[in-house]
């Protein structure tokens, strides 16, 4: 029983809240355009199944692309930083500037530069910018955290820079990189949604656009249905990263618990 409690407890709480929500809406006769009951949301999800799922796929595609792009760029840049202090000193402040600049503030610029016909590409750039920094900062920290004695061990055997990087620094930084990626995958999704909100309808038809559309039509049930899909997407992506972390760190790192 104790084994299943971590699953049963939140499930029962969740079910209880859903029932409470349903009862309160029915009891108070809350209008559908203010707060739909869970049953209304479920019905909307079924009725708009095709629209919502195709939009979820668009958001998922942009999120994954942005995540891969952000992670690859950030890891490459952090490796470059580890090889040249000059490059690090030159580029790190620029990376920080991108990190602290709110995505909504630069979204119009990116949209104009990319062209309104390419809204999806603009959203991809914006989501990448949002997801980039955690991987960069964590990879940089991981590479710098290598134990001094381990560096000396490699010096003792005359390791080349390449050997030091591949056999020591990158594996040592892996738990740090994965932590950064775990944060980054959630930010990719947030970035994709926020960017789509800012970009407006354009040519993109992700879940954010469905939310705007449903909000404008006061179709709250559909809005909630789109929100639920976003939550499911976020949780799925987080679990995906946790699984990847478990596979990669499996036996050798204490953090590899699911």
């Amino acid at each position: 029983m104790r084994k299943y409690i971590s699953f049963i407890a939140p499930t029962l709480t969740f079910l209880f809240l859903l029932i409470l929500w349903e009862c309160l809406v029915i009891y108070n006769k809350t209008p559908l355009y203010i707060l739909p009951a869970p049953s209304d949301i479920a019905l909307s999800l079924l009725l708009n199944y095709n629209d919502l799922l195709s939009s979820a796929f668009v958001t998922f595609k942009i999120t994954i692309l942005a995540f891969i792009l952000a992670s690859s760029l950030a890891i490459s840049l952090a490796i470059l930083f580890s090889q040249s202090r000059f490059v690090e000193l030159s580029l790190y402040p620029i990376a920080v500037i991108f990190q602290v600049t709110p995505v909504v503030a630069i979204a119009p610029l990116i949209l104009i530069w990319v062209g309104l016909d390419n809204a999806e590409f603009a959203i991809l750039i914006l989501a990448t910018l949002v997801a980039f920094f955690p991987v960069l900062a964590n990879t940089n920290l991981g590479i710098k955290s290598v134990n001094k004695n381990l560096h000396e061990l490699f010096s003792l055997y005359g390791a080349s820079r390449y050997q030091r990087l591949v056999k020591l620094q990158i594996p040592f930084a892996l738990p740090f990189i994965l932590t950064g990626m775990k944060t980054s995958i959630g930010l990719s999704l947030i970035g994709a949604v926020v960017a789509e909100f800012v970009a407006g309808s354009g040519t993109s038809t992700g879940l954010a656009w469905r939310i705007i559309e449903a909000g404008n039509r006061l179709d709250m049930a559909k809005l909630f249905a789109a929100l639920i899909l976003l939550v499911i997407l976020g949780v799925f992506l987080f679990l995906l990263m946790s699984f990847l972390e478990k596979i990669l760190l499996k036996r050798w790192h204490d953090s590899s618990t699911f």
């Binding site: 000396e152 055997y157 056999k167 040592f172």
Partner: peptide, 28 residues
Amino acid sequence: KMGFVFQDSTLLPWRTVIDNILLPLELT
């Protein structure tokens, strides 16, 4: 030819025991 043993074991945690022992041969 020298071998150095540090105060902590300085084993690479992502490598198995045998791969740790083989490390000097790989690096040289």
